[in-house]
Simulated assay, not measured.
Amino acid sequence: MRLVKHPVLCNYYVTYRCNAKCAFCDIWEKPSPYITLADVTQNLRDLKRLGVSVVDFTGGEPLLHRQLPEFLALARQMGFITTVTTNGLLYPKNAGKLRGLVDMLHFSLDSADRATHDLGRGVACYDFVLESIRVAKELGERPDILFTVFRNNLADLEAVYRDITQPNGLVLIINPAFEYGDIATGEQLTAAELDYLSAFGKRRGVYLNEAFIQLRRDGGNHVADPVCRAASTTLVISPSNELVLPCYHLGEQKFAIQGQLYDLYNAPETQRLAALEGRLPQCEGCTINCYMQPSFAVETSKYFWQALPSTLKYNWEKGTWKRLLQLA
């Protein structure tokens, strides 16, 4: 049964440019403009009309956009929950400008070993993540550590938890890697490794959406009976001010917004394409976390019930439930 019939999340790409070259991502390879304040202002108004409650300003590396603090301040003023994920390279020098503007601030860290983390990210950013943690804590911020799990770094999870997140009072977010297009992330996690992650996710100070694990056990999304609700739960806006459908990773079609996001999203052609969410041939076996998470949240299913405990746990540990109450 569908509980929420409007989109809840916007993945707003401020730029595709990045100052890292992660092996498991191809976004940084794309030429890209930067979004403009005028477009952001109009689009946020329309996102509010559409029922969106969370705006993820993403990239690329979002901190490359010098107006990011302005976007975040505007979104907060309009009542959105804001989220930003960064590799940490630019955070220390921009932390003051971002203070108090990001509800969910994530620093990417994939190993407690400097060489291992920097190799995966294609740039020396490990020390910047540790410095970002120090600076954020001094400013009274409560960042999370986003750990993207592959088979080759699974053994590093314990050390990150023991040596970095727990001593600093941070939440460790476990993000199982996924493949898309021509981007391969290595061998898939085995059943035993998924069981290990599931058990690890029950620890204090750890967030793992258990439905991510179950979805992988089930072989991902199946086009005959899709769990994916990417287009009806999530709006993707490109740096060129386009609405991308049905999701960023497929990008089947892009529509120029031109100040008409509300009408564009509700247009027959847009809704026709949105109705194909999870049903396209490329959707078979998909496990893309950033679209599955909102998909699990909007309708009752076994994934909804498996995702619920971890979602409640995260909101309690982070204190974001207080922010949600303020917006209610």
Rank of each mutant, 00 (worst) to 15 (best):
K5Y: 09
P7N: 02
Y12G: 03
Y13I: 11
T15Y: 05
C22P: 08
F24S: 13
C25Q: 04
D26R: 11
Y34W: 04
L37T: 11
D39N: 15
V40C: 09
T41S: 11
N43G: 05
L44S: 09
R49Y: 02
S53K: 14
S53C: 10
V54N: 11
V55Q: 01
V55W: 02
T58L: 14
P62Y: 03
L63P: 06
Q67H: 15
Q67K: 15
F71W: 00
F71T: 03
T82E: 07
T83N: 11
L90P: 04
A95V: 04
G96R: 13
G100I: 09
V102E: 01
L105P: 08
S111T: 02
A115K: 14
A115S: 14
V123S: 13
D127K: 07
L130T: 06
R134F: 06
A136G: 01
E138L: 13
G140S: 04
I145Q: 07
V149N: 00
R151I: 08
N152Y: 14
D156N: 07
L157I: 01
A159E: 01
Y161L: 01
P167W: 00
P167R: 01
G169R: 01
E179R: 14
Y180P: 04
I183R: 04
I183L: 12
A184L: 10
T185Q: 07
T185W: 08
T190E: 12
T190C: 11
E193T: 07
F200K: 00
R203G: 03
R204A: 11
Y207G: 00
N209T: 08
I213P: 03
R217W: 10
R217A: 04
D218A: 02
G220T: 06
V223H: 06
A224C: 08
R229E: 15
R229T: 06
Y248G: 05
G251M: 03
A256H: 12
I257G: 06
L261T: 02
T270G: 02
L276Q: 15
L276C: 14
L280W: 02
L280C: 08
P281V: 04
T287H: 05
Y291V: 15
M292Q: 11
F296W: 02
Q306Y: 09
L312H: 00
E317M: 07
L324E: 14
L324W: 14
Q326A: 14
